[in-house]
Simulated scan of single mutants.
Amino acid sequence: MEIRCAVIGAGSWGTTVAHLLAHNTPTVLWARDPVVAAEVRQSSTNERYLPGASLHPALTATDSMADAVASADLIIMGVPSHGFRDTLEATATHIRPWVPVISLAKGLEQGTRLRMTEVINEVVPGHPYGVLTGPNLAKEILAGGAAASVLAMSDDTIAQRLQALFCTNLFRVYTNPDVAGCEVAGALKNVLAIASGMADGLGTGDNTRAAVITRGLAEMARLGTAMGGHIVTFGGLAGLGDLLATCISPQSRNRHVGEQLGLGRTIEEVIDEMHMVAEGVKSAPVVMALAEEHGIEMPIAAEVHAVLYRGRTAEEAYRGLLNRGHVEEMHGMRRPRA
Rank of each mutant, 00 (worst) to 15 (best):
T214M: 06
T214R: 09
E219Y: 02
M220C: 03
M220D: 03
L223Y: 06
G224A: 09
T225R: 01
T225I: 12
A226L: 10
M227L: 15
H230N: 15
I231C: 02
V232N: 12
V232P: 00
T233C: 09
F234T: 04
G235Q: 12
G235P: 13
G236N: 04
L237H: 05
L237Q: 03
D242T: 07
L244E: 01
I248D: 00
I248M: 06
S249D: 02
P250G: 06
H256S: 12
H256D: 02
V257F: 07
V257D: 06
G258Y: 05
G258K: 04
E259M: 12
Q260A: 12
G262A: 11
G262E: 12
L263V: 00
G264I: 08
I267D: 01
I267T: 14
I267G: 00
I267S: 11
E268K: 09
E269I: 02
E269C: 04
I271N: 05
I271T: 15
M274N: 12
M274A: 10
H275R: 13
M276L: 07
V277T: 14
V277Q: 02
V277S: 03
A278F: 02
A278W: 02
V281T: 04
K282P: 01
S283L: 04
A284Y: 05
A284Q: 09
P285A: 08
V286C: 13
V286K: 04
V287Q: 08
A289D: 14
A289P: 01
L290M: 14
L290G: 08
A291L: 10
E292G: 11
E292W: 01
E292V: 11
E293T: 14
G295N: 10
I296D: 03
E297S: 15
M298C: 10
M298H: 11
M298D: 08
M298F: 08
M298R: 05
I300V: 15
A302I: 04
E303T: 05
V304M: 07
Y309D: 02
G311L: 05
G311W: 03
R312N: 11
R312C: 08
T313K: 03
T313V: 07
A314C: 12
E316F: 00
